[in-house]
């Protein structure tokens, strides 16, 4: 019980020094005042909740399985079609890990240089974003290969279900944005209804999902012209809303960089399933 009495101040100091030296030697974290980062740290930065590349790969493969199952459920794919889709999906996973490998290679060259390590975040951020929004979105090989893999009937069936899903997500984001605005400056039920209608008319589903989808929607709301939006609100509500929307207007570049908005350099020649149907 009284063991602590044997630990004098000197002993505690000595223990602390030993602890610091052990940590330095073990983790190679502190090397004579110079910062060094490990591969594990880099993987942690990129894969965040997944922790490392191995776990991330497993999760992505599981996710691919869910996507192909979903297409199979809606289109009743043949074995050959299913194989092709899985192959395309694996291509998306490999493409992602190629980008990861390139970023990691860059990192390994500069891991001891604090200034340059900061720059590596330019490569990490899009990877994080892609991981968060999912690899099998509209720009994925899997989605694009659908055009050449399934027949017209399957195509129509899939497009119908995919549209339904996108509308569901879009509706949830519309209501989330209105609720957030409502929390900042409460609005009446009637105002809520009118805002919902306006946002349904004036916004479209995000290109990608994930944790930044909310910002993409807020950005779209910020693009709605004042004569349409302002009459729904009173002066105080407008004052609060407008300040929030003004902040969002400044996020265009960031959203483009992270693929949440079209940045103008997409391959427009490739028609996605729903676009092809619309064109027909």
């Amino acid at each position: 019980m009284n063991r602590h009495r044997f630990l004098s101040a000197q002993t505690r100091l000595l223990l602390a020094m030993v602890l610091v030296m052990s940590c330095s030697a073990y983790g190679d974290v502190v090397v004579f005042g110079q910062v060094g980062f490990t591969d594990e740290q880099f993987e942690q930065w990129v894969f965040q909740q997944y922790g490392n590349s191995t776990t991330a790969r497993t999760k992505l493969n599981e996710s691919l399985e869910l996507y192909t199952e979903d297409v199979h459920r809606s289109c009743d794919l043949s074995d050959s079609q299913l194989r092709k889709l899985r192959l395309a999906g694996r291509g998306d996973v490999e493409r992602f890990f190629r980008r990861f490998a390139e970023a990691k290679e860059k990192f390994q060259k500069i891991r001891n240089d604090q200034q340059k390590v900061n720059q590596i975040w330019q490569d990490i951020s899009p990877l994080q974003m892609q991981l968060s929004s999912g690899l099998f979105d509209r720009d994925s090989l899997l989605q694009k290969s659908l055009v050449n893999t399934i027949n017209r009937q399957q195509f129509l069936q899939y497009t119908k279900l995919d549209d339904e899903r996108r509308r569901f997500h879009h509706e949830s984001k519309i209501k989330l944005v209105i609720t957030m605005l409502d929390q900042a400056a409460p609005i009446t039920a009637e105002q809520r209804r009118r805002l919902t209608e306006l946002l349904r008319e004036e916004t479209s589903p995000s290109r990608k999902g994930g944790q930044y989808e909310y910002y993409a929607m807020m950005y779209q709301v910020a693009q709605i012209s004042e004569p349409k939006l302002k009459p729904i609100l009173d002066d105080v509500q407008w004052q609060v809303f407008n300040q929030q929307l003004a902040q969002m207007r400044g996020m265009e570049q960031w959203l483009k960089q992270n693929g949440m908005l079209p940045n103008g350099d997409e391959d427009e020649d490739v028609l996605l399933p729903d676009e092809q149907v619309a064109a027909e």
Partner: peptide, 22 residues
């Protein structure tokens, strides 16, 4: 409305994660 949005957003997140059918 607050409850509705929480339900919708959570369902949408589940859909994103688990690829649910309609």
């Amino acid at each position: 409305a607050r409850k509705e949005v929480a339900v919708l957003v959570t369902a949408a997140k589940l859909d994103r994660k688990l690829v649910l059918n309609p």
